[in-house]
Structure formats: structure tokens, C-alpha cells
């Protein structure tokens, strides 16, 4: 009897959890689905889940209207560039704090993390003044620098937490065997650090990709990434659902793919390590 009740309860919770999950996912699913329909089918009653004429016309229209590929390329360069640059700067710092901690390490980490929570408007003036001064407005190089700067704390922090998980005994053993610092870093540390670096890379790429405050305010046309692309569709101007859906699908497609693989990193990064 008791068993029957628990089974029934289990089924109920499973159904409920799935129902909420589908509800949350529905807008994304529906957007993608609608992007492949004609405008008439997009607002068909009843809504069409299948049996519509699959069309790529919406994508062609959007590409023609606003040159998606250029925005996409800018996003790739800016997010990728700032991430790689950030990792290059952060790896030595994280290595130093994780393996040669000093009395101050905790305080430094606290101080670094705190900077990530501060609002962007706090540094808006100096950065825009510098951008004007050095002609960095609407350049990819300028954005790469800014995004690297704002994400550096989180990169250092993430790398630090991953590096900390590398057991110190292994390093000691390597040292006992007479490994030099160079050998230690090259043959012992690096292979074990790569998964952590890859995770940090992934997370930061997504963060940089999604960043909108700076990308919207510091670009006009030539360096504008996908955030600006989607913002330009903010007022529909005669476009209807199928076209708008195609535009948003194009904006989120890369993240939909990366997002699936980076759930853990996302939680870990956005909670500042409170959740591992």
C-alpha cells in the first residue's frame, strides 16, 4: 500500500516537473518552430506543431535585411578574442593563488570577485572617455579589451577554483622526483589544468557573447555584434512573427548549442562558486 502511494506520488511529481520544464522551454521551442513557417501558418488557428510547409524564406529575408553574417562574425571575434586574452592574463594569476597561496590570497579573491558584481554604469564615464580619446568607439579591438576587463575577475576566480581541485600531492611527488619548475608546469600541471581552462573558456565565451551593456553602447555599425543585431529588430516595423522568430533563432542558435554543454559552468560561474 505504502509502496503504491509512493509510486503514484513519484509519477505525479515527474509529470509536474516535466510540465513546468516544457512550459519554460516552450517559448524557445515555439520561436524556433515558427521561424520555419510562412507568416500565414505562423498565426494559424489551431497552432501548427507539424504538417506546415517547411520554409527557409524567413532566414533569407532576415539575412538580406540586416546582414546577419557580419554581426555573427563580430560576435565570434569579440567574444572569442576577449575570452582568450582574459585566459592568458588570468592563468598565471590563478596558478599563483592556487598553488602558492599567501596570507592575502583569500582577501585578494574576495576583492576580485566583488568587482564582478558592481554595475557597469560605475565605470561608464572613464571607459567612454578613453574610447573617444583613443578612437576605439565602434572597433572590435576596443570591445575585446573592455569585455576582457569586465570578465577578468570571474575568469581568475573560475580558474582558481578549478586549479584548487588539482591535488597538491601530485605536485609534491613531481618535485620529489626532481622536476624543475618548467617541467612541473609543462608535464604535470598543464594536462590536469586543461579541463578547468576549457570550462572557464566556455563560460566566459557565453558571458561575453551575451554582454549587452557595452556592446550596445560602444558600437554603432562596423563592430556591432549579435546583441545589436537583435536590438535592431526591437521595433518590428512591418515584420511579423515568422520573420521575427527567424531573427531571434539566428541570434540564439550558437548559445543554444553551447548552452547545452555548459550548464555546470554556467551555474558555477554565475553563482561565484557558491554552487559547484
Amino acid at each position: 500500500m505504502a509502496r503504491a502511494v509512493t509510486t503514484r506520488r513519484k509519477i505525479a511529481t515527474t509529470v509536474l516537473a516535466w510540465a513546468i520544464g516544457l512550459l519554460i522551454f516552450f517559448p524557445i521551442f515555439w520561436t524556433i518552430l515558427t521561424s520555419f513557417k510562412t507568416e500565414a501558418q505562423a498565426i494559424n488557428n489551431p497552432p501548427l506543431f507539424w504538417g506546415f510547409d517547411f520554409t527557409l524564406e524567413n532566414y533569407a529575408v532576415v539575412q538580406e535585411r540586416s546582414d546577419y553574417m557580419r554581426f555573427l562574425w563580430n560576435s565570434v571575434i569579440i567574444a572569442g578574442g576577449s575570452t582568450i586574452l582574459g585566459i592568458l592574463v588570468a592563468v598565471p594569476a590563478a596558478w599563483s593563488m592556487a598553488f602558492v597561496p599567501s596570507r592575502r590570497t583569500k582577501d585578494i579573491l574576495l576583492w576580485m570577485l566583488s568587482t564582478k558584481m558592481l554595475p557597469a554604469v560605475g565605470v561608464l564615464y572613464p571607459i567612454s572617455l578613453i574610447f573617444v580619446e583613443f578612437n576605439l568607439l565602434d572597433t572590435r579591438g576596443g570591445l575585446i579589451l573592455v569585455l576582457m576587463l569586465i570578465n577578468l575577475p570571474i575568469i581568475v576566480w573560475m580558474l582558481y577554483t578549478y586549479f584548487r581541485e588539482i591535488p597538491a600531492e601530485i605536485l609534491e611527488a613531481a618535485r620529489m622526483d626532481g622536476a624543475t619548475l618548467k617541467a612541473e608546469i609543462l608535464y604535470v600541471l598543464t594536462p590536469m589544468a586543461i579541463p578547468g581552462i576549457a570550462s572557464t573558456l566556455l563560460l566566459n565565451f557565453i558571458l561575453a557573447w551575451n554582454e549587452a551593456f557595452w556592446t550596445l553602447n560602444l558600437t554603432a555599425a562596423s563592430a556591432a555584434p549579435l546583441t545589436a543585431f537583435i536590438a535592431s529588430y526591437s521595433s518590428p516595423e512591418g515584420l511579423f512573427f515568422a520573420k521575427l522568430s527567424a531573427a531571434s533563432t539566428m541570434a540564439i542558435a550558437p548559445i543554444l548549442i553551447l548552452g547545452w554543454f555548459s550548464q555546470k559552468q554556467l551555474v558555477r560561474g554565475l553563482t561565484f562558486g557558491a554552487v559547484k
Partner: peptide
């Protein structure tokens, strides 16, 4: 991952949608 998906998207995209 389904529950977490929205968080991976940019606020600017979800806002527009």
C-alpha cells in the same frame, strides 16, 4: 538543462522576444 536554458540566453534576446 531545460530549466537552465533561459539563463544562458542574452537578456537582450529574451527582452526583445
Amino acid at each position: 538543462p531545460i530549466f537552465l536554458y533561459p539563463m544562458a540566453l542574452s537578456f537582450i534576446v529574451t527582452g526583445t522576444a
